[in-house]
C-alpha cells in the first residue's frame, strides 16, 4: 500500500511528466491557450495513459524482456525481444487510441464531441509513449503499480496543462515584451513552474527507512533522488540509478 501511495505522489509531483522530463510538450504548448480545451486534452491523456501503461507492462513482462518467453517452454527462455519494444508499444498505443475513439463515439457522443478532436492527437503525444518507456526502464514490479503509474503520470500532466492554460488566459492582460509574446513567454513560465516543482523533490527523501528496505524499487528511487540532489540532469540520474542497481 505504501509503495502505491509513494509512486502516486512521486509521479504527480516529483517526476511530473511536463516539468521533470518535458514529455508531451508539443500538445502542452499548442493546446494550452484556453482552460476548457486544456481540460479536455488533459482528461484524454489521463485516460489513455491509464489504459496503455498496464497493457504495455503485460507486453513487456510476457513478451519482450530478457527471458520473458519462458512461459512458452524452457527452450524459449533465452530469447530477448527487447529491441522490438518501440514498435510494439507504439502499435499498442495507436490501436488503443483508435479503439477508444470508436467506443467513445458509440456510447457517449457528448464525451466524444468534447474529447473527439484530441484523441487522434494523443497517439503521437510523447507523454503516452514516454509513460510506457519509463515504465520499462524503471522496472515497475506489478500490474497494479503499472496502472497506478499510468494514472498518476496522467494526473500530473493534467495539472501541468491546466496550470499553464490558466496562466496564459490571464497573461493576455499583461504587457509582455513584443518578441516574447505567445510562445516565448510560455516557455519561460514553464521553466519557472518547473523550478517550483523541483522543490517537491525533497518530499520523499526523509521517509521511513525500514519500509523502504522491504521494497527494492523504492530503494532504487531513493538513490535517484540523492543523485538529483547533486544537481544532475534528471535523465542522467535515471541512468545512474539503473547502473547502480546493476
Amino acid at each position: 500500500m505504501l509503495e502505491h501511495i509513494e509512486l502516486f505522489f512521486k509521479s504527480i509531483f516529483i517526476d511530473n511528466m511536463v516539468f521533470a522530463t518535458f514529455l508531451g510538450m508539443c500538445s502542452y504548448l499548442a493546446v494550452s491557450k484556453r482552460v476548457a480545451t486544456a481540460v479536455g486534452l488533459g482528461a484524454a491523456v489521463i485516460f489513455v495513459l491509464a489504459v496503455t501503461v498496464p497493457l504495455n507492462w503485460l507486453l513487456d513482462q510476457y513478451l519482450l524482456r530478457d527471458g520473458a518467453l519462458a512461459w512458452l517452454g524452457p527452450e524459449y527462455a533465452d530469447y530477448n525481444l527487447g529491441f522490438l519494444s518501440f514498435i510494439l508499444f507504439i502499435a499498442t498505443i495507436a490501436t488503443m487510441v483508435q479503439l477508444v475513439e470508436i467506443v467513445v463515439e458509440k456510447f457517449s457522443p457528448a464525451l466524444y464531441n468534447s474529447l473527439g478532436i484530441f484523441l487522434p492527437l494523443i497517439a503521437v503525444n510523447c507523454a503516452i509513449l514516454g509513460g510506457s518507456l519509463f515504465m520499462q526502464s524503471r522496472d515497475i514490479q506489478t500490474l497494479g503499480l503499472a496502472f497506478n503509474y499510468g494514472l498518476s503520470s496522467g494526473i500530473g500532466w493534467f495539472l501541468a496543462i491546466l496550470a499553464i492554460a490558466a496562466i496564459r488566459e490571464k497573461i493576455r492582460y499583461s504587457n509582455v515584451p513584443a518578441p516574447l509574446r505567445g510562445l516565448g513567454i510560455t516557455f519561460i513560465i514553464t521553466g519557472l513552474m518547473a523550478i517550483g516543482f523541483m522543490s517537491f523533490g525533497g518530499m520523499l527523501t526523509g521517509g521511513d527507512e525500514a519500509a523502504q528496505e522491504e521494497v527494492p524499487t523504492t530503494v532504487q528511487k531513493e538513490n535517484e533522488d540523492k543523485i538529483s540532489e547533486e544537481a544532475k540532469e534528471n535523465t542522467v540520474s535515471y541512468n545512474n540509478a539503473i547502473k547502480n542497481k546493476n
Binding site: F19, F22, P179, L180, I188, L192, I195, E233
Partner: peptide
C-alpha cells in the same frame, strides 16, 4: 552555474532564443 544543468533552464534558454530571433 550548476543551475544551467537542471532541466528547467533548457526551457528558459529556448525562451531566450525565441526572444532573440523575434527581435
Amino acid at each position: 552555474n550548476g543551475f544551467m544543468l537542471l532541466s528547467p533552464m533548457a526551457l528558459i534558454v529556448v525562451g531566450l532564443i525565441i526572444w532573440v530571433q523575434r527581435s
